[in-house]
Design a protein around this nucleic acid. Structure first.
Lengths: 181, 181, 181, 181
DNA sequence: AATGAATGAGCCTTCATTCAT
DNA sequence: AATGAATGAAGGCTCATTCAT
């Protein structure tokens, strides 16, 4: 267990400091201060390390997010704020995790995670299921793009506001439709 | 030239049919019906093949999109429609191209491409620069997510409408602001 | 360790038996009865094998030479004798080692080695530094040439004597100069 | 013929400027401004280029040396002077040529060349054949070593003198022996 | 549980050489 | 004679994984 954590820590650091090219099992074991043999005692293969790393980060994020949502004036804004600042200071790790998720079927897992986050929020009345889906992916997608492109406004209030504009637009449309009905 | 195209075709097919794991220069040359030596006469290294492939697809997309925008009632909707159906039938290739773009600095290239597409559209009056940026990435991001997650509604009119709702929301917000000023 | 030695032995044998063309890492590993992976666990690259081989032979030579100098009537003659018979029976290896040394900056290393040998000998009174340098390189060079050209007299007493003539000539000149001063 | 010379010139330049690693037929043809096809019309294989280059340089050297010997007070000193300054300004080429010569049986060719040079000089009375052989190789070897080691005194008068000391020592020994007989 | 030496499939790439035009 | 696209054998090296200790 100490080993398991050490491996994941090492994996994260390598992704962050040394790049994906250095992300190999031997290097991970070395940086974790563990023999490769031990590494393979805890993880069946390399892919599993990446997966576990993803999962660990996601869980940590979720815990933190739940806390932030509590008592926020607008929980949606709270979530957006949180998503923007997630992985702050470890952009390479974020990219790697996202890339890893894209690599395989786990794109579904990533989507499921987004849905799980969505379920923490109160539903927007009048907003259809597909619209809600589109909205959530749009927000996440915009943040992701800004991260990957290294957009200078990423961490500003203005960017957060721009995203809230999208949310508010959807809210207004939904409200209008509700009223019409 | 014939060789170059053959290599790119083979590369695309391999990405699509055999997966990224099979994407190695020997296999590419083989499938292209070309010697490995010839392959390297046209591409300095493996990465360059992926890059060239990306570029080729992007250029093809742009050409097609420009045509579709012409005479569309709502050019924004035309673009969205086009983006949704781009790479239709070759999701693995799309994923690979996107992943390749994410791999390096070319994330910027990908963003630049989106901006280039955006410049084909009439600006939305009253919409700030950062908001326009966020909107474009949001739309692209939502489509991307649906592609990666294999969302069943991806190719439906309803999904297109859901995305248009976001656009219309932004338009309304911008219009309101313009009127207030 | 056993592996390391096996690799070096194999390398030496290949150089000797199969020629430089066969001196490739796969062949070396094969002949060493070791997997290519193991080979690379001990040597970072091909060049390093050649270097290590050089070093090993040089060290062995030095040890043997030191022993031979002990109690020799004329230590210079002892060194010359030794240099002539070094690598006896493995001319191809000798040539390869020399060639390897010539390949790179290690020509300096080779020179340094000669100087180290020189320092084992009593200085010749009256012989200037540059003259001593020239004499040492002359002797080594003559032996080297005879080896490379495969001169039939190489291993004869006569050749040794011919080289001693050069040494004696230098000694006489130095003595004459000393006397004059 | 223009092609042949162009190829040899290019080969020499590459050896000098770009190093042995860049010494491949494609690069040679390119730098010669000639197609590889043409290159292979004049040279049966890569090795032949190196050989022809060696030969050309050697012939040029010999011609120049013959001229320098004419009317020299001491022809031996003239030869030594010439050997020291041969290839001046193109040390990498010299090394490459020497290395090439060492590579194969052409070590004999190199030796034969030295003998040819020796035949230009008046014989030293009383000096045996093997002694003469040793002396010639010693001188050449000392120069070669100084070149390869990059000895700072290489091009000085002092170095020339040091080599002459060896010659004079041999002369004196030979004279003494002649007198005794 | 831990170790780490060993394995070897397989990848990227180079480059001498050929040959149809 | 010249061209240069094409060839493909071959080589250096990596790295996920195993297994005896």
């Amino acid at each position: 267990m100490a080993t398991e954590a050490a491996v994941l820590d090492a994996a994260a650091q390598i992704l962050e400091d040394e790049g994906e090219a250095a992300f190999n099992t031997n290097r991970i074991a070395e940086r974790a201060g563990v023999s490769i043999g031990s590494l393979y005692q805890y993880f069946p293969n390399k892919q599993a390390i990446l997966l576990a790393l993803s999962r660990r980060e996601v869980i940590a994020m979720r815990a933190q997010m739940a806390a932030e949502i509590q008592g926020a004036a607008d929980p949606v804004r709270a979530v957006i704020h949180h998503q923007i600042h997630a992985f702050a200071g470890r952009p390479a790790l974020r990219r790697a995790v996202v890339r890893a998720a894209m690599a395989e079927e786990s794109a579904h897992a990533l989507g499921a995670e987004t849905d799980r986050t969505r379920s923490l929020l109160p539903p927007i009345p009048g907003l259809g299921g597909l619209e809600a889906y589109a909205l959530s992916r749009a927000i996440i997608g915009a943040i992701r793009a800004a991260v990957l492109e290294g957009h200078p406004a990423l961490y500003t209030q203005a960017f957060e506001d721009a995203l809230m504009t999208l949310v508010d637009g959807a809210r207004a449309a939904a409200a209008a439709r509700s009223a019409a009905a």
